[in-house]
């Protein structure tokens, strides 16, 4: 049973990492959003499995938040925003996808080597989980720096945050996981609804793509 439980946790965390790689590979905004929804679903399965294995019922709440909020509501809302604001459907990359993928592989190797070495004394459950989680976090960061467009930066941030939730769920008996996932959801909701929709709509009534481009955070 224990072996099986470990294998399933391993499989789910590994799938999350795989979906992170798939997200880096996307160059269309809509497919990126779909893969993000998948990311959230895999996360919610992974957290639910941790809840079952650790016998920690409160983690089911975190899993449910991941499934409904990040798997359904946020991707749908972002799709709507992209349609309504007529944002570029293509994801602008700072560097080519090939180089980004190579960097991603390097970061994954780094995080696995680092975490497995550092957590030599921790139990194997937490070890593997933390290694995958760190890789997902670093890939999220990579996505935020290699994408120009604000929507994909938000998606990058959310995938980074999924990695954090995976790490928090993997740390056995960690308190405040639910509160932290709620806090993150509030943060994201605030940003997506508030800054994005409300402020930008109000300011750029003409929905000028050029104006939106200037709003990207990476220019002086």
């Amino acid at each position: 049973m224990d072996k099986l439980a470990f294998d399933i946790a391993h499989l789910l965390a590994g799938s999350l990492l795989l979906v992170s790689f798939l997200m880096i590979y996307q160059d269309r905004l809509f497919s990126l959003l779909r893969f993000f929804a998948l990311h959230a679903v895999v996360l919610s399965l992974s957290v639910a499995w941790q809840a079952y294995v650790q016998d920690a019922p409160f983690l089911y709440i975190t899993a449910a938040i991941a499934l409904f909020f990040k798997g359904l509501i946020i991707p749908a809302a972002l799709q709507k925003i992209v349609r309504r604001l007529e944002i570029h459907r293509e994801v602008e990359q700072v560097v080519g996808i090939g180089i980004t993928m190579l960097a991603g592989i390097g970061l994954t190797a780094l995080s696995i080597i680092l975490m497995l070495r550092v957590t030599a004394n921790a139990d194997s459950f937490a070890r593997e989980d933390m290694a995958f989680a760190l890789a997902v976090i670093l890939l999220g960061l990579l996505m935020m720096v290699t994408r120009r467009n604000a929507v994909s930066q938000v998606v990058g941030f959310m995938s980074l945050e999924n990695g954090l939730i995976l790490a928090a769920a993997g740390a056995k008996g960690m308190p405040l996981v639910v509160e932290i996932s709620v806090a993150f959801s509030v943060l994201i909701a605030f940003i997506v609804i508030g800054v994005f929709l409300f402020r930008i709509r109000e300011r750029f009534d003409t929905v000028d793509v050029g104006a939106l481009d200037q709003f990207r955070g990476d220019q002086k």
Partner: peptide, 25 residues
């Protein structure tokens, strides 16, 4: 809500969130 203010807030949000994410880890 000037363009510059929105851009500053956006930059602050993105970098601040990355910082806060690393701190949580």
């Amino acid at each position: 809500r000037t363009e510059a203010a929105l851009e500053a807030a956006w930059k602050y949000f993105i970098l601040g969130s990355v910082g806060i994410a690393l701190a949580l880890f």
